[in-house]
């Protein structure tokens, strides 16, 4: 679709759309205004300049980027299989991928505990063999946020792969490119914008994850306490700290999302 064509689309949107869209924007804007209204601006720096906040920030950064990395490494192949391979039970696998979106995160965290905890189905043999305990460690945080956020990557990339014109892959194959080369040099660049969008969504979900993390990985400052957990704890004691932390999260997320949307995700 050329730029000229899109600019010649319907110039006047339906009035009902404008009104309803405005309602939606206000709906998103109001909580932000509430947050800003309660922000203790004068104490902001001192509230955020604590070791607990710094630890939570670092942990959230590590965990969210680890989640994006793991989701990409295993999620892209999964999306490819779902989009391209016709196998029995594909609908079931796709439903399984959707599960973390449907499950309340706390339940997801408990389920992870039952599976990968020290007494879990898989966790117990793992613990007996290696002494590794996943909960109450940074590994637990990474596992919890990855579990909850990976569906965004898989769904986005699968959709993109379905829209790829497979004739280009055939063209590459006819030129002697094997499966991996075709994927790397043709398919991947074609789904690039969608992959980036999926990674950003995954990151956004990971950075905000609370329920599964606190249930599976627990809450210990400097060990497993991510920013959302710090916010929750702060909310119990000092609302100013909670507000300041929330504002920090909003600022980080908006920066990343707006920058990426503009730089990476601009439609070709």
């Amino acid at each position: 679709m050329s730029r000229a064509q899109s600019s010649h689309g319907p110039s006047r949107p339906p009035i009902a759309f404008v009104v309803l869209a405005a309602i939606a924007v206000v709906f998103f804007l109001l909580p932000l205004i509430g947050l800003l209204a309660r922000t203790p601006w004068s104490d902001l720096v001192s509230l955020l300049a604590s070791e607990v906040v710094a630890d939570a920030l670092v942990l959230s950064a590590i965990a969210s980027f680890a989640a994006v990395t793991i989701s990409t490494v295993v999620g892209v192949p999964l999306a490819w299989v779902l989009a391209r391979v016709d196998f029995r039970g594909r609908a079931l696998v796709r439903g399984l991928v959707l599960l973390p979106l449907v499950l309340p995160p706390v339940v997801g965290g408990a389920a992870l505990l039952f599976a990968l905890g020290r007494r879990g189905v898989v966790g117990e043999p793992l613990y007996e063999a290696t002494g590794l305990v996943l909960p109450f460690s940074i590994w637990g945080v990474v596992i919890a946020v990855t579990f909850v956020s990976m569906p965004f990557l898989v769904l986005t990339v699968e959709g993109a792969l379905r829209n790829v014109d497979v004739r280009f892959e055939g063209a590459a194959a006819s030129l002697g490119a094997g499966g991996w080369t075709v994927f790397r040099r043709v398919t991947l660049p074609m789904i690039g914008p969608s992959l980036a969008a999926g990674m950003v969504l995954t990151w956004a979900r990971a950075i905000g994850e609370f329920g599964a993390t606190v249930t599976f990985a627990g809450n210990l400052a400097g060990e497993t306490q991510t920013l959302p957990l710090a916010v929750f704890v702060a909310l119990e004691t000092n609302r100013d700290t909670a507000t300041a932390l929330s504002l920090l999260m909003v600022a980080i997320s908006l920066t990343v999302l707006v920058l990426l949307r503009d730089r990476w995700l601009r439609p070709q």
Binding site: G117, F136, T215, L220, A221, E223, T224, V233
Partner: peptide, 18 residues
């Protein structure tokens, strides 16, 4: 090893043997 946000989640982890 963990500061749970409420009694319920602390009990869940104890019940699970974690």
């Amino acid at each position: 090893d963990t500061n749970e946000p409420n009694v319920r989640s602390l009990l869940t982890k104890i019940e699970a043997g974690e």
